[in-house]
Structures are given as C-alpha cells and as structure tokens.
Simulated assay, not measured.
Amino acid sequence: MAEAKVFLRGHIMVPANRVAQVRAALPDHVALTRAEPGCLSFEVVEDADIPGRFNVSEVFENRAAFDAHQARTKASEWFEVTQGLSRDYSISSE
C-alpha cells in the first residue's frame, strides 16, 4: 500500500508593512519548493479580497517529503521573511 499523501491548506497573514518583502521572496520560495523531491503541488496566492492574506495549498507524496520541505524551509530566506507572521494551516493525510 502506498504511503498517504500529505495536504496542507490554509493561509498566512502579512501586515501591510511586510507585504512587499513577502511578495519579493515568494517566487524563489515557490520555485525551490516545487523542485523538491515529493512535491506534487505547491501554491501560495495572494487573496484578492483580503489584504495581506496569502492562501497556501501544498501536496506532498508522503510524510517524509513533507518533513523534508519543512526542514529546508526553516533554513531559507522565506523563513526569515515570514518569521513571526500569523499562520492558520490544517495538515491532513489521505
């Protein structure tokens, strides 16, 4: 039996004084994540209706790939740029 895929869905809230910095760091974060082994889908999209809200949707082929992504992110520019921001995520396996 195949390992369960890992899904993360939710959003990050960015105050107005940090939106430009987050926008600038986002393309590299997305490109690096999509290049990771086991990344099936990765989207971070600025919400059209709620200022400062970035909607996040991730799918990894298994828990090991998801955990590797989390570890890589903690050593990235994205982690520094978004440190301390409010995140509301749900993680599930299917």
Rank of each mutant, 00 (worst) to 15 (best):
L85M: 15
T82A: 13
G52D: 09
S76G: 07
T82F: 07
Q70N: 14
G52Q: 09
V59A: 09
S57R: 06
T82N: 12
G52R: 07
F79M: 11
S57L: 04
F54D: 00
R87S: 09
K74C: 03
V59E: 05
G52L: 05
R63F: 03
N62T: 01
A64P: 14
G52V: 04
A71C: 03
D88E: 15
V59C: 11
R63G: 00
D88G: 10
A65N: 12
R87T: 12
K74R: 12
V59Q: 12
Y89T: 07
A68Y: 09
T73S: 10
A64K: 15
F79V: 07
E77P: 00
R72P: 13
Q83G: 08
V56R: 05
A75C: 11
G52C: 10
V59F: 03
V59G: 03
G52K: 06
A71Y: 03
E77D: 09
F60D: 03
F66P: 00
D67W: 07
F54Q: 02
A71D: 04
F66L: 00
H69S: 13
G84T: 10
A71K: 10
V81H: 11
T82S: 10
N55T: 12
A65F: 09
S57T: 05
F60T: 05
S57P: 00
A65P: 04
V81L: 07
F60N: 02
W78D: 04
D67A: 12
N62A: 02
T73K: 04
Y89H: 11
F66G: 00
R63T: 01
E61Q: 09
F66R: 00
E80F: 05
Q83W: 03
T73N: 08
S76C: 06
Q70K: 15
D88R: 12
A75H: 14
S86V: 14
E61R: 13
S76D: 05
H69C: 15
S86F: 07
L85D: 13
R72T: 12
T82L: 09
V81R: 10
Q83T: 05
G84K: 14
S76V: 02
A75G: 14
Q70M: 13
W78G: 02
Q83F: 07
V56A: 02
R72K: 15
R63M: 05
A65G: 13
R63L: 05
Q83M: 07
T82Y: 06
D67F: 12
R53V: 08
A64M: 14
H69Q: 15
V56W: 01
F60P: 00
E80H: 08
V59T: 09
L85Q: 15
D88T: 14
A68V: 03
F54I: 01
S76H: 04
G84M: 07
H69D: 15
W78V: 00
S76L: 02
D88W: 11
E77M: 06
F66T: 00
E80Q: 13
A64W: 13
K74V: 01
R87D: 09
F79S: 14
A64D: 15
F66S: 00
E58K: 08
T73L: 09
E61Y: 05
N62S: 06
S57A: 12
A68C: 12
Q83Y: 06
V81W: 08
F60Q: 03
Y89G: 02
F54P: 00
V81F: 10
A65T: 10
D67H: 11
Q83D: 06
Q70A: 15
E77Y: 04
V59N: 06
V56L: 14
Q70L: 14
F60A: 06
Q83I: 02
V81E: 10
R53E: 01
A64R: 15
A65D: 11
